[in-house]
Computed example of a mutant assay.
Amino acid sequence: MLQKNTLLFAALSLALSSAAVQRADAAVVASLKPIGFIVSAIADGVTETQVLLPDGASEHDYSLRPSDVKRLQNADLVVWVGPEMEAFMNKSTQSISEKNKVTIAQLEGVKPLLMKGGDDDDHDDDEGHAHAGHESEKGDVHHHHGDYNMHLWLSPEIARLSAVAIHDKLVELMPQSRAKLDANLKDFEAQLAAADKQVGHELAPLKGKGYFVFHDAYGYYEKQYGLTPLGHFTVNPEIQPGAQRLHQIRTQLVEQKATCVFAEPQFRPAVVEAVARGTSVRMGTLDPLGTNIQLSKESYATFLRQLANQYSSCLKGD
């Protein structure tokens, strides 16, 4: 009897250990870091969150490595915006079952919230010059290569809807963890409401202060908090704009009485300095990917607040 129990225990141990090996790579895989902020809040204490796009890489030209493809195939759940934003994932996600995938842009609650015309436009003309955004009769900035602005993580409400969808999928996949997942979602919604209120209060005095961004990414955030962009320029960090191009940008900054011009971490400061030189326009940096923020339960709220600080420090002149 003792020998039989020993053999049974050994067989059970072997089965469990092989299952553990098979599941070693399994986790929730988020396409981009800010998506990882939302995922990590819901998955906290239940399963690991991994981010596919490495810090410093661009979603515009990233190519999946074989190890990335393996991670996607082994994931319990894959969360991404959709093929319009992460084109590099499109082929690899087609074979992933719908029950193991959240495509944020396609969520029923998100579709009515999509904003027209702000998709990435990291395309240069034949001379290697980046194009400036132009204003319509209503003053809206339009320059895009897709129908919708896909920087959906910059909308607090879309982040909340994404969190609900992630929660619901994980409950289906891991019903034994329902209580923890429910608590995590409740915590996320409370943190989000508090951060949204704080950011709204911080940015309210800055309504009407005009500024330019280099990358037309921030429409959802700007709409939420009543900010006033005057336009945008997409600057290829690999190509230094020529003197004529810089003069055009500088003229627009002065004519439209811009308070501030914002770069992003991946753009060389020399480009920003060249644009603002000889004007009274201040220089700032906006980080739409939260590259310096670590994944945690609080990281999305931290991300919203960090962007608010980046806007206000430049627009106020702190």
Rank of each mutant, 00 (worst) to 15 (best):
L2P: 00
L2C: 07
L2E: 11
L8T: 10
L8S: 10
A11I: 11
S13A: 15
S13R: 00
A15K: 00
V21I: 11
A27R: 03
P34M: 12
P34Y: 10
V39L: 10
A41P: 01
A41G: 14
G45H: 04
L53S: 03
L64D: 09
P66K: 07
L72R: 03
D76C: 04
D76A: 06
D76H: 10
L77W: 08
V79N: 01
W80A: 12
P83T: 05
E84D: 14
M85S: 05
N90F: 09
K101R: 14
K101D: 05
I104N: 02
A105V: 13
Q106N: 14
L107R: 08
E108C: 00
K111L: 13
P112W: 06
P112H: 06
L113V: 01
L114K: 06
G117N: 14
D119K: 09
D119N: 13
D119S: 15
D121H: 06
D125W: 08
D125G: 13
G128T: 08
G128D: 06
H129N: 15
K138F: 04
G139D: 05
V141Q: 04
V141I: 15
H143V: 03
D147T: 13
Y148M: 06
N149M: 10
L152T: 10
L154E: 01
L154K: 01
S162W: 03
I166C: 12
K169P: 02
L170S: 07
L170H: 03
L170W: 03
S177A: 14
R178K: 15
K180Q: 15
K180V: 14
K180Y: 01
L181T: 04
D182E: 13
A183N: 12
N184Q: 06
K186N: 13
Q191S: 14
Q191D: 15
A195C: 11
A195M: 10
V199G: 02
P205N: 08
G208R: 08
F214M: 13
D216H: 12
A217Q: 05
Y218T: 03
Y218G: 04
Y218P: 07
Y221N: 00
K223Q: 14
Q224N: 05
G231E: 09
F233L: 15
V235S: 13
I239M: 07
A243C: 05
H247M: 12
H247C: 03
H247Q: 15
R250Y: 06
R250F: 04
T251R: 08
V254L: 01
V254H: 00
V254C: 00
A258K: 01
C260W: 04
V261I: 14
A263I: 06
E264G: 06
F267P: 03
F267S: 11
R268V: 11
A270T: 11
R277P: 02
R282M: 04
M283C: 09
G284C: 13
D287Q: 07
L289K: 08
G290H: 05
Q294L: 12
S296W: 07
S296E: 09
K297D: 06
S299R: 03
S299E: 01
R305L: 12
S312C: 05
S313K: 09
S313A: 08
S313D: 09
D318E: 12
